[in-house]
Amino acid sequence: MPGTFETRLAELGVTLPDAAAPAANYVPFVEAGGLLYVSGQISMADGQMIKGKLGADMEVEVGVAAAKACAISLLAQVKAACGGDLDRLERVVKLTAFVNSTAEFGDQPKVVNGASDFLVEALGDAGRHARSAVSAASLPFGVAVEIEGIFKLK
């Protein structure tokens, strides 16, 4: 039987993908002292990378969708870390987001709202978090957004 968070995701039409395996010599998450640190999740949807540079060849709305995709991948990692029980998640503590953008682009916070707004919509108050939204000259594989997260577990 799905838990509260999984039920809410289903109501939103969101199915969490399988948690992605690491692409190099690192682990996807580490639990320490009741906190779960999730490695950066790149913007992917339907198994395809969302690539582009904000301020050059990508509009803010597409960047917002890319950030939401990162948040979905973060929740998939949390679910994997919790043995499939997403309701072990107590709250999202902090997101650090990197936006592939030009030097002139200044709307990184608007882009990262795609992740923040989704987490609050899906998790309610447990989704409210501290955050950083920073520009990056480039990201792995040319993706538009990468987000890492810290989560508190029950």
Rank of each mutant, 00 (worst) to 15 (best):
A97C: 14
F98A: 15
F98R: 15
V99G: 06
V99I: 08
N100Q: 05
N100T: 05
N100F: 06
S101A: 15
S101F: 09
T102G: 03
T102W: 04
T102A: 02
A103T: 13
A103C: 05
A103Q: 14
E104Y: 13
F105T: 03
G106V: 08
G106L: 07
G106R: 10
G106S: 12
G106Y: 06
G106T: 14
G106K: 12
D107A: 15
D107M: 07
D107W: 08
Q108H: 09
Q108R: 07
Q108N: 12
V111S: 05
V111R: 05
V112Q: 03
V112K: 04
N113S: 11
N113H: 13
N113D: 15
N113T: 02
N113V: 00
N113Q: 12
N113M: 11
G114L: 06
A115E: 06
S116K: 12
S116M: 13
S116C: 07
S116D: 00
S116E: 01
D117F: 10
D117E: 13
D117W: 07
F118V: 01
F118C: 02
F118I: 01
L119A: 01
L119N: 01
L119R: 04
E121R: 11
E121Y: 06
E121G: 02
A122N: 02
A122K: 05
A122E: 04
A122P: 04
A122C: 02
L123F: 03
L123Q: 03
L123W: 00
L123V: 01
G124H: 07
G124P: 09
G124A: 10
G124Q: 10
G124T: 09
G124D: 09
D125G: 13
D125R: 14
D125Q: 14
A126E: 07
A126V: 12
A126L: 11
A126S: 15
A126Y: 14
A126K: 08
G127C: 00
G127L: 00
G127H: 01
R128Y: 09
R128E: 12
R128L: 11
R128W: 06
R128T: 12
R128P: 00
H129K: 01
H129S: 06
H129V: 02
A130Y: 06
A130G: 11
R131A: 11
R131P: 00
S132W: 03
S132R: 11
S132V: 10
S132F: 11
A133E: 13
A133L: 08
V134S: 13
V134H: 10
V134Q: 14
V134I: 15
V134W: 05
A136G: 08
A136E: 08
A136T: 06
A137I: 10
A137N: 11
S138N: 07
S138T: 09
S138H: 02
L139S: 05
L139E: 00
L139N: 01
L139Y: 04
P140C: 01
F141Y: 12
F141A: 14
F141C: 13
G142R: 02
V143Y: 10
V143D: 13
A144K: 03
A144R: 03
V145H: 08
V145E: 10
E146W: 10
E146V: 15
I147L: 11
I147D: 06
E148V: 09
E148P: 01
E148A: 15
E148T: 12
E148W: 09
G149W: 07
G149I: 07
G149H: 09
G149C: 09
G149Y: 06
I150A: 09
I150K: 05
I150F: 04
I150C: 10
